[in-house]
């Protein structure tokens, strides 16, 4: 399991691995939005939580199809399926590797992007917390979508259509935590809900994704 995690991280960081792709996309979005909406503080600060969360979600979506597609193309997935590792474990590890290379950098860099969108300082810790709690769910749910579409040519579009509805609850509660944090309102409820979504998907999705992979490998 550790070998697989280390290999996936190494592949992501080496040339052409796609590390930084999500971060770059996030940067482009947060730089462009103020030009589109206008730099007035009131307008930007009002939409900042939503824009930041939509950005995180799309950045995550951008690299999802790499989770299994590359391993499927070069035959590694067949071998992982016949290896002593349980396929559920393979899914969980690959989702974790995806989060470490896509979600975690966004969490760390989010305050900087928040500044670009005039997000109030009071909301920064809440933005980081909401992304920290919510982005793992994006990776795990995405792994399910990637597993469903693994054998398909140009499966990325279908995968996005399948995964986006599943992302909506995370998006709602994530943006809500940041918005309430900015206003100083209580955040306990959305925090509990987003943590619940992440925990439930991390616990259940690997089984569903592994089942989908087994069907697709036939």
């Amino acid at each position: 399991m550790r070998a697989l995690l280390l290999r996936d991280l190494r592949l992501a960081i080496r040339a052409g691995g796609g590390f930084g792709l999500g971060l770059c996309f996030f940067l482009i979005l947060t730089v462009l939005v103020p030009f589109g909406i206008g730099p007035a503080r009131a307008g930007l600060a009002a939409v900042a939580p939503g824009i930041l969360w939509v950005g995180a979600l799309l950045a995550c979506l951008l690299s999802l199809d790499r989770i299994f597609a590359l391993d499927h193309e070069d035959g590694s997935l067949d071998l992982l399926a016949t290896s002593p590792l349980p396929l559920e474990g393979v899914v969980a590890i690959k989702a974790l590797a995806h989060w470490l290379t896509t979600g975690l950098p966004l969490v760390v860099a989010a305050p900087v992007f928040g500044l670009l969108l005039q997000l109030p300082f009071a909301a920064m810790p809440w933005l980081v917390l909401s992304l920290l709690l919510g982005t793992p769910a994006l990776s795990v749910l995405g792994a399910f979508g990637a597993a469903l579409t693994v054998g398909l040519r140009r499966g990325g579009l279908l995968m996005s259509a399948l995964v986006l509805p599943l992302y909506i609850p995370t998006l709602i509660f994530g943006a809500e935590i940041t918005r309430r944090g900015a206003e100083g309102a209580p955040v306990a409820a959305p925090v509990a809900l987003i943590a619940g979504i992440t925990l439930a998907s991390a616990a259940l999705i690997p089984f569903a994704a592994a089942a989908a992979l087994r069907v697709n490998l036939r």
Binding site: R2, A3, R7, R14, A15, D74, D78, L79, L80, S83
Partner: peptide, 20 residues
């Protein structure tokens, strides 16, 4: 298919499967 990752060295590729 050879299940060989182009960005890993030959030894790294083999060591990964040995550990798995």
């Amino acid at each position: 298919a050879d299940a060989v990752k182009p960005t890993l060295t030959a030894a790294e590729n083999l060591a990964f499967w040995a550990r798995v």
